[in-house]
């Protein structure tokens, strides 16, 4: 089987999944939609982590761009009076890409644990700036008003469903684009870079450029995730840029595995479901339950949840 047909099939599956998710919004109880929305928005950030993970780089500071996305939405809608969801998404994306384009020049020089730690330090600096900003509510953050869509303001009752469909649409689009990217030459070379950067250099390709591009790309999707989270919860605060938030993204990335574009979505939803039920049934020991479940998954499925799906199917060409 050639790589191309596999990808086409995946794309069709993604389209179907997107449509199915959107349709489910009408029947499912809203709390479930809300959980899904947050999980998918988070999964977008995780996609960014995974893009870099395929290159062998682990970012413990993806919260930087998650936070930039969220605050771009918050500031634009609260202080500049912009309420259009698409403009806000574009702003979040632009802000993150601009920051990443500069920081990426530095970051692309780092590997291994140092990449992880420097990315963590950078996100914590943003966290510090936000905590210091009393005009932005410091650690309390501030609320984000409801969005409009190309001039259309949904009735209060519809607002939730529209936001849900928007999230699904954005997530579906990004998933499709990522899927195309992973199948492209640049996407496929990533694993070679992870295995041996110098050999890739000898082949006449520039791993550093690839790392830079991935860094910027990861920043972009993380900002979209941050913006969608801000839409869904209607609130932003510095916690978005905190190291523990970034750590959670890495956690989910490893939970899903890097094998497939759908893996982060699956992992993120599973993570949210496990956590919310641990909260409900064992409010005093939910961390214990969560830790045990995650440990079990790592120990028994070190390649992530996706290995369950993959091993059952054919070995990929």
């Amino acid at each position: 089987m050639s790589a191309k047909t596999t990808i086409d099939k995946t794309q069709v599956a993604l389209l179907i999944a997107t449509a199915a998710f959107a349709a489910a919004g009408v029947i499912a109880p809203y709390w479930l939609c809300f959980l899904t929305m947050l999980a998918l928005a988070k999964a977008l950030v995780v996609q960014g982590v995974v893009i870099q993970m395929r290159l062998g780089l682990v970012s413990f500071g993806q919260g930087l761009f998650f936070g930039i996305g969220g605050y771009a939405v918050g500031i634009a809608s609260n202080f500049w009076g912009i309420s259009d969801a698409f403009v806000l998404l574009a702003l979040a994306l632009a802000a993150a890409v601009a920051v990443a384009a500069v920081l990426g020049l530095l970051m692309a020089r780092y590997r291994d644990i140092f990449f992880a730690m420097l990315s963590l330090a950078l996100s914590m600096i943003l966290f510090g700036v936000l905590v210091k900003s009393q005009g932005l509510g410091s650690t309390d953050g501030f609320n984000v008003p409801a969005q409009s869509y190309l001039g259309w303001v949904p009735a209060p009752g519809q607002q939730k469903l529209v936001a849900y469909v928007l999230t699904i649409a954005v997530v579906g689009t990004v998933a499709l684009l990522l899927c195309r990217y992973l199948g492209s030459g640049a996407g496929q070379i990533a694993e070679a870079v992870r295995e041996n950067e110098i050999r890739v250099e000898y082949l006449g390709l520039s791993p550093r450029w690839l790392i830079y591009a991935s860094y910027v790309m990861a920043a972009g999707v993380a900002a979209l995730g941050g913006a969608l989270t801000a839409f869904a919860t209607g609130h932003v605060d510095p916690e978005m840029a905190y190291w523990a938030t970034s750590g959670e993204f890495v956690f989910i990335a490893l939970l899903g595995g890097t094998a497939h574009v759908a893996a982060p979505f699956l992992a993120s939803i599973l993570f949210s479901v496990v956590r919310t039920y641990a909260f409900e049934y064992t409010p005093h020991t939910w961390q214990l339950i969560l830790g045990l479940v995650l440990l079990a998954i790592i120990v028994f499925l070190p390649k992530g949840l996706w290995s369950l799906v993959q091993r059952e199917g054919k070995v990929r060409a």
Partner: peptide, 30 residues
């Protein structure tokens, strides 16, 4: 736990110890 996992890569071990942190956090409380 750990001795069964020494063949895993460094990053996975970070996450293993993170799960451990969650577990120990609640055990300490108990």
């Amino acid at each position: 736990l750990l001795r069964f996992l020494y063949r895993q890569n460094e990053i996975l071990m970070v996450i293993v110890t993170y799960a451990l942190l969650l577990i120990l956090e609640d055990l300490t409380k108990l």
